[in-house]
C-alpha cells in the first residue's frame, strides 16, 4: 500500500517535471520583472548597473507629489487617462446594442456580411489603424478632397495634427476597431436564448421593442455585467500602442495617458526610476480595482469572475 502511494506520488511529481520548463518561462517573464521594481528605490542612471547605484528610498515616489512641474504633468496625464477610460466605460453598452439590432436583421447574407466586415478592424494592428487614419485624413486624403470639393472646407486641414477633440477622436478610432468584435460575445449570448420565449411573446402580441426590452436585454445583461467589471478593473490601463502611434507634438498634451507617459518618461527621457515608481503605483491601484470589481461581482451575481 505504502509502495503504491509512493509510486503515485512519484508519477505526480514526474508530471510536474514535464511542465516545469513552462513554469520557469512564466517565472522569468512574468514574475522576475517584479524584481525590476527595485529600480524605483535607487538612483539608477544607465549604463551604470543597479549594483553601483545609490539607494534613495522613497525619493522618487515623493518627487511625484513634491515636484510642482511633475505633479502638474501627472495631473494632466491622470485627467487624460480617467476621461478616456470614462468615455470607454460610459459607452460600454454600445456593443450590446450593436448585437441586439444586428440580430433584428432578417436578411441572413446581409447580417453575415456585416458581421464579417465589422470585425476585420479588430485584427489589424494600431500601426495599421494609424496608417489608415493618415492616408484618409492627411492633406491629400479622401476626406479633405471630398470636403474641399463640396465646399465644406476652404482648404485641406491636417486633422491628425489638431489638438482639439483628441479624447473623442481617439475614442472613435477605438470604437471603429473594436465595436464589431466586442459585439460577437453578445451575438453568441443572444443565439443562446430559447427561441420559444420569442415565439410566445409574439403570440401574446409583444412588439419588437417589447421583445428586446423584456427578453433579449435581461438575457444578455449578465454578459454585459462581467465585461463591465473587467473594464472597471482595467480603468488605468488604456494600453500605450494606440496613443503612441497617434501622438505628435500638437496633440501630446491631451493624448498622453498613464501607460504612454510611463513609456515616454523611461524610453524618451531615460527616467527609468521615476517611471518604475509610477508603474508600481499603477499596479497597486489596478490590483485594488480588480479586487473591488470582483467583490461587486460576488455581491451582485454570487460568483467571482477570476
Amino acid at each position: 500500500m505504502n509502495l503504491f502511494r509512493n509510486k503515485k506520488k512519484l508519477r505526480s511529481f514526474k508530471e510536474f517535471l514535464y511542465i516545469l520548463p513552462f513554469i520557469l518561462l512564466v517565472g522569468v517573464f512574468s514574475y522576475y520583472p517584479l524584481y525590476g521594481w527595485m529600480y524605483a528605490f535607487f538612483d539608477y542612471r544607465p549604463p551604470q548597473p543597479l549594483t553601483m547605484s545609490n539607494f534613495v528610498g522613497l525619493k522618487w515616489f515623493q518627487s511625484l507629489v513634491s515636484n510642482p512641474v511633475k505633479t502638474k504633468q501627472i495631473m494632466s496625464v491622470m485627467v487624460n487617462t480617467l476621461v478616456m477610460s470614462g468615455i470607454t466605460v460610459g459607452t460600454s453598452w454600445l456593443p450590446m446594442f450593436f448585437a441586439i439590432f444586428l440580430n433584428e436583421i432578417k436578411c441572413v447574407p446581409f447580417r453575415k456580411a456585416v458581421q464579417t466586415v465589422t470585425t476585420v478592424p479588430n485584427f489589424i494592428s494600431w500601426v495599421l489603424v494609424y496608417s489608415v487614419a493618415f492616408n484618409i485624413f492627411n492633406n491629400t486624403g479622401v476626406v479633405n478632397h471630398v470636403m474641399v470639393a463640396w465646399g465644406i472646407l476652404d482648404e485641406p486641414v491636417q486633422f491628425l495634427q489638431k489638438s482639439d477633440h483628441v479624447w473623442i477622436t481617439q475614442w472613435l478610432w477605438l470604437t471603429w476597431k473594436n465595436l464589431g468584435w466586442a459585439a460577437i460575445m453578445y451575438i453568441a449570448a443572444i443565439t443562446g436564448i430559447d427561441e420559444q420565449m420569442f415565439e410566445a411573446a409574439k403570440v401574446d402580441g409583444a412588439t419588437r421593442m417589447q421583445r428586446i426590452h423584456y427578453i433579449t436585454i435581461p438575457s444578455i445583461l449578465p454578459t454585459y455585467f462581467v465585461l463591465l467589471m473587467l473594464a472597471i478593473a482595467s480603468f488605468l490601463t488604456n494600453g500605450m500602442e494606440q496613443y503612441y502611434v497617434f501622438q505628435n507634438a500638437f496633440n501630446k498634451e491631451h493624448i498622453q495617458v498613464l501607460d504612454l507617459y510611463v513609456f515616454n518618461l523611461a524610453m524618451g527621457s531615460g527616467s527609468y526610476s521615476v517611471a518604475t515608481a509610477l508603474s508600481i503605483l499603477k499596479s497597486m491601484i489596478s490590483l485594488i480595482l480588480l479586487t473591488i470589481a470582483n467583490g461587486i461581482s460576488k455581491l451582485v451575481r454570487g460568483e467571482s469572475f477570476l
Binding site: I19, Y32, P33, G36, Y39, V262, F263, A275, S279, K282
Partner: peptide
C-alpha cells in the same frame, strides 16, 4: 497552485518598464 500561478499573470504584471529592464 501552478494553474493559478500561470493564470494570474493575465491580471497582474510588473509594468512595461520593469519588464524592459528585465
Amino acid at each position: 497552485f501552478w494553474y493559478r500561478f500561470v493564470i494570474v499573470t493575465m491580471y497582474f504584471n510588473a509594468g512595461i518598464i520593469p519588464w524592459f529592464l528585465t
